[in-house]
Amino acid sequence: MPKWGMVIDLDKCTGCQACVVACKTENNIPFSTPEQAEMGRTISWIEIIPIMEGEYPRPKLRYLPRPCLQCDHPPCIKVCPVYATYRNPEGLVGQVYSRCIGCRYCTAACPYTAKYFNWSAPTWAKEFEPCLNPDVSKRPKGVVEKCTFCHHRLQKAKEKVKAEGRELKDEDYVPACVQTCPAGAMYFGDLDNPNSKVTQQTKSPRAFRLLEELGTEPKVIYLTEGEWHGAYRK
């Protein structure tokens, strides 16, 4: 069974946010209004987190793209009272909207703030409705949602390779953010396959995981830029 993981090379990332928009179009993520944004209710499954260090004239601004890290020991699933969020056999942390009761324990439990609560019903202008992705549901008000590693793409990829009578390869299944990344800073693949690009990358001396000390064992691995070893703050 493959174990899906992502590697993000911070040395290549330019902070352009193409991944953010790609994710929104792929996953029917409603855009917020200015008022909601002001209240911090913008939903962004993958978010660019800026990290400002130093003072003028030598400031260093870094960007950290943060999807759901799909932890192997996800703190969010431990607190869910209704089993709406769980870790599936391929290591993906699933979120079942029809089960979710919106208690937001998981949003609080996630140390990476990767989970988002729908404070209001998603609204699109009527004109925008045709471009919603039929492979992804529209989440109702009152449920928690998060990055799925574009899990629906995996379903379709599995189906495709089965129809073609072959094994699933890394390039068959790529989340929208990885596919679009202009700088090629994101890699995706099977962490259990020793030959996959991601596995190779995790062996890099630059590799690190966010808040490793919490023991969450995230499956999103970052590569530092230069000698930087990321302290995470928001």
């Binding site: 179009t25 009527k126 004109e127 925008f128 679009t180 202009p182």
Partner: peptide, 22 residues
């Protein structure tokens, strides 16, 4: 030029096509 990549503005092209203010 882009080798399968696309930027944030390119990705948002759908919201130009389907923009209600067209």
């Amino acid at each position: 030029i882009n080798n399968g990549r696309l930027c944030q503005v390119g990705q948002a092209g759908l919201q130009v096509l389907y923009h209600p203010d067209r």
